[in-house]
Deep mutational scan, measured.
Amino acid sequence: TTVVVGNKKYTFDNPEAAEKFAKKVAKKLGATVHKTNGTFKVK
């Protein structure tokens, strides 16, 4: 599962961990999490 934050990509074996990370980053940046085909995008 990939999490994309700006131009950085983070890969997780565990989708739950990926989602948690994405939400944490989004909260910090005041952004939102978008899920597309198993990829979480923070923007």
Results as ranks from 00 to 15, higher is better:
Val4Glu: 14
Lys8Pro: 00
Thr32Ala: 07
Val33His: 02
Ala26Ser: 04
Thr11Glu: 08
Thr2Gly: 05
Lys43Met: 15
Val33Asn: 01
Lys8Val: 08
Pro15Ser: 10
Pro15Lys: 07
Phe40Asn: 03
Lys20Trp: 13
Ala31Gln: 05
Ala31Arg: 04
Lys9Trp: 12
Glu16Tyr: 12
Gly38Ala: 05
Ala18Met: 01
Gly6Tyr: 14
Lys27Asp: 08
Ala18Ser: 02
Asn37Arg: 05
Ala18Gln: 00
Lys24Thr: 09
Val5Met: 04
His34Asn: 06
His34Gln: 13
Glu19His: 08
Phe40Gln: 03
Tyr10Ser: 01
Val5Ala: 03
Thr39Met: 15
Thr2His: 13
Lys20Glu: 10
Val33Tyr: 07
Lys8Arg: 13
Lys9Gly: 05
Glu19Cys: 07
Lys24Glu: 09
Lys8Ala: 09
Thr1Ser: 10
Thr11Asp: 07
Lys27Ala: 12
Lys43Phe: 15
Lys9Ser: 12
Pro15Glu: 13
Leu29Asn: 04
Glu16Pro: 05
Lys27Val: 08
Thr1Pro: 08
Val5Gly: 00
Lys35Arg: 10
Lys23Ala: 09
Gly38Thr: 05
Lys24Ile: 11
Val25Ile: 13
Asn14Met: 07
Glu19Ala: 07
Asn14Lys: 09
Ala22Met: 02
Lys23Ile: 14
Thr39Gln: 15
Tyr10Gln: 01
Lys23Arg: 13
Lys43Asp: 12
Glu19Ile: 08
Lys8Leu: 09
Thr36Gln: 13
Lys20Ala: 13
Asn14Ala: 07
Lys35Trp: 15
Thr2Lys: 09
Thr2Met: 13
Val42Met: 03
Lys35Val: 12
Glu19Lys: 07
Phe21Lys: 00
Val5Phe: 05
Gly6Cys: 11
Ala31Glu: 04
Thr1Met: 08
Lys23Ser: 08
Phe12Trp: 04
Lys43Pro: 06
Asn7Trp: 13
Lys27Glu: 10
Lys35Asn: 09
Lys35Ser: 07
Thr32Pro: 04
Asn7Arg: 14
Lys27Thr: 08
Thr11Pro: 05
Asn37Ala: 06
Ala31Tyr: 08
Pro15Gln: 09
Val4Ala: 06
Phe40Pro: 03
Lys41Arg: 14
